[in-house]
Design a protein around this nucleic acid. Structure first.
Lengths: 226, 226
DNA sequence: AAAGTGTCAACTGTTGACAGTACGCAATCG
DNA sequence: CGATTGCGTACTGTCAACAGTTGACACTTT
């Protein structure tokens, strides 16, 4: 009974078709392959994945509950468009959760986890130096994902990830980030330092401020873009 | 083009079968009709609702993403069981959101909304006086739902409701509440007063404290029950 | 009698088909 | 010429049926 043995058998046993399809569609949406607001063709996806429409419909139903797609009866499901108002509301919640993350991490962070965070910081520095914006974004997501994961609160992780996805969806609505790049990385270092100080109030405030700055950058990008 | 005209036509047009089925199953779960941990029979539900299994499967998929059911491949979907650990984690998030709710409400509450809250308080007092615990619980849910709704942040409402449902699911796991009844009502009055004072810090702290007390009552109930 | 094996009913995962709706386009009418 | 009506296509909502899996029960074997 050895658990950590990812054989093909286990994959077939645990992965259902709808689950795989759902992951794939989600990836397509978040990568921008399926454009925001675009209608999603069930039959098209079904033939593309080599399945029938049933699993695709189930997958879309899941994504709808996730908030990634919106459904209109007899018309189809559409990739959800996040308005600036909704993005703002999402940031409201995210700030609160970020503060919680910071406070908890300051209490529970381990040496090993701190090392992992420092490694990510270094990678992001490298990406910044190389002006590799795509890689930086990926690492940025990884960094925040690691933070919330280190808290060890599944419910929190779930909520946070949901919000993150929505904001990602909003950014896909055409614009790029508002020049926060090296700036954001400096803030990341502050975050890690604050957490390492094991001062809950400080770590919480730092993480909340980072979220607020991120929101401000979003607004700035919108203003200059418009 | 008058929107607020709920004719039968609109109902048929906007409500899809899977949606109705999903609502109905959710109600069954939260009312305890479907017991926690119990396996859900797709075919059974389908015949009970007079539909085929397709809509039922879609509905269950939605509920899975909601966190109300859990699915095992080739075995079926089960009403989710929330452990004490998970409930604790949920409370962690809920406390943070409750504080946010309080802070926002203190800034935006209107006279009309305050009246609505006072009306609910009065109803809860009546329920307490009549020892009508079922009615009190329903009003309690309504009260907190009104609070989060008055903030006017759809994202926040969604997250909060999700957490609330999970906690409701946990309470269904057998036990009743830990004697917080009249106690909880006194706290509700404090909450409304704090909001009415329009002091964000005070309102936030009061709401957070209420969530924490609720969590404490949960633990107390567990200890005495065990 | 205990352990292992074969069999079967119930149920899930998936499919293909059918009915109904929405949308584009041409023909028609004012 | 513009608006309207009447198709025809494409797609969604739903269903009924098929294939594969699970879990339990009876049966063999020792």
């Amino acid at each position: 009974m050895n658990a950590p043995m990812p054989t093909i058998l286990h994959l077939v046993q645990s992965n259902t078709l709808s689950g795989l399809v759902q992951s794939e569609i989600e990836r397509s949406i978040l990568s921008g392959e399926l454009r925001v607001g675009e209608r999603i063709n069930e039959s098209g996806l079904a033939t593309r994945f080599g399945t029938s429409r049933g699993p695709v419909r189930e997958a879309l139903r899941g994504l709808q509950e996730c908030g990634l797609v919106r459904s209109e009866k007899n018309r189809g499901v559409f990739v959800r468009e996040i308005s600036i108002t909704e993005a703002d509301q999402t940031y409201d919640v995210r700030e609160a959760l970020d503060e919680l993350i910071g406070r908890r991490l300051a209490q529970s962070i381990t040496v090993k986890q701190l090392e992992a965070l420092h490694a990510l910081l270094a990678d992001m520095d490298a990406a910044t130096a190389g002006h590799d914006i795509a890689r930086y974004h990926a690492l940025n997501l990884q960094f925040h994902d690691a933070l919330v994961e280190f808290v060890g609160n599944a419910r929190l992780s779930e909520c946070y990830r949901r919000l993150t996805k929505e904001l990602l969806l909003f950014r896909l609505r055409g614009l790029q980030d508002g020049g926060g790049f090296g700036v954001s990385n400096a803030e990341h270092k502050e975050i890690v330092m604050a957490i390492a100080s094991r001062d809950p109030a400080r770590a919480g405030a730092t993480l909340r401020a980072h979220a607020a700055d991120s929101r401000a950058r979003m607004h700035k990008a919108l203003d200059t873009g418009a």
